[in-house]
């Protein structure tokens, strides 16, 4: 298997442990991840303020992949949603597709989008399905967004036990972090409270935005409320890497903000 690796904005700067673990696990599984230097922001940040710019930025990335005839492997859920949605829109709307391609310097009929390239979240490549699949209508093979289970199954194949807890589908709050930090941190704290109550030893994520909230900001959340969580936050490829016997050093654990040493002692 060969994929173009789409890092997006957050993973390569804020969640390098996610990127490291993904590359290691892909290597172990015989998946070739190709770095395309022309990939840029997926356009998600502009969707709510300027639809056309968002569309053009997403389309441009898809055109880069189509030129290389490579399907796209994405680390971030927001990037996955944006690229999947735009890929679908452009495949089904001939007029819009030609306008967009022309604005980006492409020729008539040069790009087809849709079936020409598949956009997949990294977790969907490693196994099947994705935990966060909203809006569900843009995905062809989605699971029930009100009762997702694929991440539980993915966790359990590593030998770990997936713990159910209340409000599992609650948003992490990253989408509103730049607008109102208080709201974003309160949302993240609710989840940390719920996870702590469940008795889980660690959180497993598949999105760097969520990582910003639960890992990078966990100490701030603790400081603002005098709470102590000390809850390690792992990206799924890190957990899978451990199960595949990869050295935790190669999986970027030293970049985790909340140290996972005790967790690693328990599982290795």
């Amino acid at each position: 298997m060969r994929y173009a690796l789409f890092l997006g904005c957050t993973a390569p700067t804020k969640s390098r442990n996610y990127e490291l673990a993904t590359r290691e696990v892909a290597r172990a599984l015989g998946i070739e991840l190709v770095d395309l230097p022309d990939f840029e922001c997926c356009g998600f940040p502009l969707k709510s303020v300027h639809h056309e710019s968002h569309l053009l930025m997403a389309a441009r990335n898809l055109m880069v992949a189509e030129r290389e005839e490579l399907d796209v492997c994405v680390l971030c859920s927001a990037c996955t949603g944006t690229l999947t949605e735009v890929n679908r829109q452009l495949a089904h709307n001939d007029v819009l597709r030609e306008q967009v391609v022309s604005k980006l310097g492409g020729g008539k009929g040069e790009y087809v989008f849709g079936s020409a390239i598949a956009v997949k979240h990294v977790v969907r490549i490693l196994h099947y399905g994705c935990h966060y699949l909203r809006p569900s209508e843009i995905y062809d093979d989605c699971e029930d967004p009100e009762d997702p289970h694929s991440l539980d199954e993915l966790i359990e194949v590593t030998g770990a036990k997936s713990v159910r807890y209340s409000e599992r589908e609650r948003c992490c709050g990253a989408g509103v972090l730049a607008i109102d930090e208080e709201i974003a941190l309160s949302l993240a704290q609710k989840k940390l409270e719920d996870v702590r109550s469940s008795g889980a030893h660690a959180m497993v994520l598949m999105c760097p935005f969520c990582g910003v909230m639960y890992d990078e900001n966990q100490a701030r959340i603790e400081a603002r409320s005098d709470a102590t969580y000390n809850l390690p936050v792992l990206y799924y490829p890190q957990l899978l890497g451990i199960a595949l016997g990869i050295d935790p050093k190669s999986l970027g654990f030293r970049l985790n903000r909340v140290k996972a040493d005790k967790f690693l002692e328990r599982v290795i």
Binding site: L7, P12, R16, E19, L20, R23, D35, P37, D38, E40, C41, L46, V49, H50, E52, S53, L56, M57, R60, K103, L104, G252, L255
Partner: peptide
């Protein structure tokens, strides 16, 4: 990134500036 064994990424303006200019944003 290099010290971690990760590939370098491109720096600078790229195409987003041009897209945002052309679209009026």
């Amino acid at each position: 990134r290099e010290s971690l064994g990760l590939p370098k990424l491109s720096t600078g303006e790229g195409s987003a500036g041009e897209i945002c200019r052309a679209s009026g944003l």
